[in-house]
Design a protein around this nucleic acid. Sequence first.
DNA 1: TTGTGTTTTATTGCCTCC
DNA 2: GGAGGCAATAAAACACAA
Length: 308
Amino acid sequence: MDPGRVVFDSGLARLAAPGSGGGGPQMLLFGGSGGASGGGFFRGVPGMEDGRVINNKRPFFTTHEELLEEEYYDEQAQEKKRRLTTDQVQMLERSFEEENKLEPERKTELARRLGMAPRQVAVWFQNRRARWKNKQLEQDFDRLKAAYDALAADHHGVLSDNDRLRAQVISLTDKLEGKVTTPSAIAAAAQEVDQPDEHTAGLMVTRQHKGDIFNGGTNDGSSPVVIDVAEGTNHSGESGCFAGDYDNNGCAGQYGGGALSSEEDGGAVSDEGCSFHLPDAMLAAGLVHQAAEEEAHLGSWNSWFWNE
DNA sequence: TTGTGTTTTATTGCCTCC
DNA sequence: GGAGGCAATAAAACACAA
């Protein structure tokens, strides 16, 4: 094709009707603003004047065969870019929805039907995949954020439960004020307090005592599970809900360290002269455990406890 | 009209696969 | 080694508020 030849006629009209026959004059990029931004087709395009090539630059409209020449395309790349028409974009979008990867045959066919260079089609798909990926990432982020928010709300609920249970502990402590020094009294106190709700029970089941003292060694699941309040831990190695809440130094606090020392501390109980209070069923259970250890020193009351 | 932010088109360089 | 994909980026086109 003569480099100086410019085809004006139906270039845009054909673009407005994609697929309306191939082989005719096609539009390539560059060439001013084809519509939205106003101005003539060739406004501001170097080498063009009244639609005529006035130097050795190629025209904006050319044949399909030339569109397929990458060399020609590269040559044109030095000029201004222009946006694809609405129809071109729509068709590309439809094609992208069918398959977001572009096989060579499809690329060639799309380029032919849209009057674009194959490389242009490839670039469009590349950029479209990038936009699609970004959108996916945004959606993933939104989903994760929603999940996080739900978890945070749930966590807030747990904290509220925690506060409520603390208040319950204080209330029950008041009710159960008084010296409790014997295993039978402890057991009675434990029975007096409210049955723990599901949440409290969950908190209580924090550790299966190895070598359960009540059963003489093995824990078959039927024996009491105790919480180690003396260490102020939740038995996962971290400070738990009640960590630091109870004075574990000496007997001054509600729970004297000696009185509630766990078997990890050696199990030896030295609560002489100390008195302590039972806050609720949970802690009473801890005291039951503790008292049992005391009894272990004095002699076995295991059978007594379970047969009581 | 102009400044500024966003979107779109295109390039570059690197990587992977055949 | 060539083809194709992707991330990063440039730059033109576009949108919009002041």
